[in-house]
Design a protein around this nucleic acid. Structure first.
Length: 597
RNA sequence: GGUCUCGUAGCUCAGCUGGAUAGAGCAACAGCCUUCUAAGCUGUGGGUCGCGCGUUCGAAUCGCGCCGGGAUCACCA
């Protein structure tokens, strides 16, 4: 029984004995005592006032006395207004710390035989341009959520669907063919995805110029857009691709190859990975076949022009196109095909799509369609819908060149971390290699924490002019605390100090110390909640609070210089436990923590 | 226009399954390194929780209505 359960049953018993009334669990509200009051946990007494027919103060007093008399974990209490503040026996906290310290996997649940597969799709890039800040949020959330669900006992399969076909990639291909002069990543030194992105931009410029020219001859904008030679050529190329034209396919494979090499580098730097990657070029045909099956089974219908539709009016939605009249597939078709392949490949119990909130409607529809097609998890698929990353001026726009490039940003962060370390002279005794490793950890830690600490559902603002902080509520602050603790533990080892289980349950520990244990004891609940709510932000904010408290403790108390041997060992165990929870919490965020910094 | 979503300090964000005087960080100002890492600690100032009504012993939190921002309602992905 954990503390909350103990208190719950204690309160139930008190109310029964004192007022002869039954209480439901939901009526017993237990919260952490606010800092300005004495005590560890607070019981809200208002719900019992009616049963007792006495004032809140009296009820609080009576329950408090009962608890104190009958439950040894309770060491004191006070009542303020309708709040019963209860102090918990120090020995309970020491026992709790011992339990935490001896549990190597503290806070995480290993998947057992019965645990199902949770497939998590994230990243899902197009192959026509490099990754940007929006993708960073997606990737970090996807990776973190995967780690969190693993910690909650799921067998997680991380997946990625690469949108490698379609008109967008043909645009880059065409521009490269026309204007590229055979440029390659090798010849130019450009990262493959950036090189392809460059030609996507070149296409767009040339295309716009053509539109302008056509409009000068009196054509309307709409017509010009449809009739510009470049777009017509791109469409021709797409058709050739679909018809397996050898030359087009070769060019496509070459340029996509460049992009994948580039993406791999970015993913590696970001620290994200996938267990299974799908490509739309390999799934869209399956999608078409599934849609045809839907027609056969009469869950979809075909119109006179031979386009295929799903009628979702019964579900309160519209009719949705699934195949065009010319038989080509749309976005939805591909997602159905991908789902089918995944269904065949894995025994999926829960499917999670990490995709921006602009696609809420799409996933609402997809869920219904998959359900109609008989996928067990269709109805319960999770669209982990996250908000956009915006600039102070609003949305990032590639046309206006305000897109924040993922590679650039990461590099910038790492450089800043390196400079900061240098200024502070922190790593003077380290090798170049160690310095680089730490700069990378810290720079990326700052970026990742900055993004993950905010509620994923909300839009967030990134100001490129203000660099991401390294002080305060930041990743480096948390990493720094870990490094600090590790430093103390190293010194303890050097001095031959051993610390393990605390045997003296009567140690005089401070409020700050017992509060730290209380915080540590919340970690498993936070991990569970983060899993249920799909929120890395809960972990991030928890980590911050823990570390903030620890730093106060660190400032106010001596550890190695403490003369009382029992206390010294207690503080080492406490510090070690904080470091452990900091590390595993950060690991759930995909952030590494250094031994020194 | 329909649907969804957000609005908390100058800025970035917590708190939202109703509970005490609404919290952090940044920025500003004032302190703390002969002591385990000062990327730290302490203090000061800073709020009509968008507005109004309702439910309640109690509302930033729940409901309704406004106002303001965003998303979406494609034979785009």
């Amino acid at each position: 029984m954990n503390l909350e359960e103990i208190i719950q049953s204690a309160v139930t018993q008190s109310v029964k004995t004192l007022y002869n009334a039954d209480t439901e669990i939901s009526q017993i509200q237990i919260q952490k005592t606010k800092k300005e009051f004495e005590g560890d946990v607070t019981i809200v007494v208002f719900p019992f006032v009616k049963m007792a027919r006495k004032s809140p103060e009296v009820v609080g007093q009576e329950i408090g006395e009962f608890l104190l008399a009958h439950y040894p974990v309770v060491s004191a209490f006070n009542v303020i207004k309708g709040f019963l503040n209860v102090s918990i026996n120090k020995s309970h906290w020491i026992e709790t710390l011992n339990a935490i310290h001896s549990d190597a996997l503290y806070g995480t649940v290993l998947p057992d035989e019965a645990a199902g597969v949770m497939m998590i799709e994230y990243s899902s890039p197009n192959t026509n341009k490099p990754l940007h800040l929006g993708h960073i949020r997606n990737n970090l959330l996807g990776h973190s959520i995967s780690e969190i669900q693993k910690a909650n006992g799921w067998n997680v399969v991380k997946t990625n669907i690469v949108n490698d076909r379609g008109i967008h990639i043909c645009k880059s291909m065409l521009a490269w063919k026309l204007f590229g002069n055979g440029e390659t990543p090798q010849s130019s030194g450009l990262k493959g995805d950036h090189l392809v992105g460059k030609y996507y931009v070149i296409f767009d410029k040339a295309y716009k110029a053509e539109i302008k020219e056509l409009m000068a001859t009196g054509m309307s904008e709409e017509e010009a857009k449809k009739n510009a030679p470049l777009i017509l050529d791109a469409q021709k190329m797409l058709l050739a691709w679909e018809n397996n034209d050898k030359e087009v396919r070769q060019l496509w494979e070459m340029m996509n190859g460049w992009v994948y090499a580039g993406f791999d580098e970015t993913y590696q730097q970001m620290g994200v990975s996938f267990d299974k990657i799908y490509y739309e070029s390999e799934t869209y045909l399956t999608g078409k076949a599934e849609v045809e099956r839907g027609v056969d089974e009469q869950v979809f219908y075909r119109r006179d022009d031979s386009s295929v539709w799903a009628d979702l009016t019964a579900d309160g939605l519209d009719e949705k196109l699934l195949l065009r009249a010319d038989g080509t597939s749309v976005y939805m078709t591909q997602d159905i095909g991908t789902a089918k392949l995944r269904y065949n490949d894995f025994d999926i119990q829960k499917m999670v799509y990490v995709v921006g909130n602009e696609q809420n409607y799409h996933f609402q529809v997809l869920s219904i369609l998959l359900d109609k097609l008989g996928f067990a998890w269709g109805k319960s698929l999770v669209h982990f819908s996250y908000g956009m990353v915006e600039l102070p001026e609003g949305k990032m726009k590639s046309r206006e060149g305000t897109v924040v490039d993922a590679d650039d940003l990461m590099e910038e962060m790492i450089n800043t971390a390196r400079e900061t370390s240098q200024e502070l002279g922190k790593l003077d005794n380290c090798t170049e290699e160690e310095k680089n490793t730490i700069a990378r950890m810290v720079g990326l830690g700052a970026l990742k924490y900055f993004i993950l600490k905010v509620d994923p559902r909300k839009n967030m603002t990134f100001n490129p002019k203000e660099s991401i902080d390294f002080n305060g509520n930041t990743g480096p602050f948390i990493q720094y605390t870990h490094a600090r603790i590790k430093s103390v533990l190293r010194k303890a080892t050097e001095q031959g100090v051993n610390f393990g289980t605390i045997v003296d349950m009567q140690l005089e520990i401070s409020e700050k110390e017992s509060y730290l244990i209380q915080l540590l004891s919340e970690f498993p609940t936070v991990v569970k909640q983060a899993g249920e709510e799909f929120s890395p932000a809960l972990i991030a904010n928890y980590e911050y609070e823990l570390v903030k408290e620890y730093n106060q403790f660190y400032h106010d108390f001596s550890i190695l210089k403490e003369e009382n041997e029992g206390l010294k060992q207690f503080r080492l165990v406490l510090s070690d436990s904080v470091a452990k929870v900091v590390k595993s919490g950060m690991q759930l965020l995909g952030i590494e923590v250094p031994e020194r910094m």
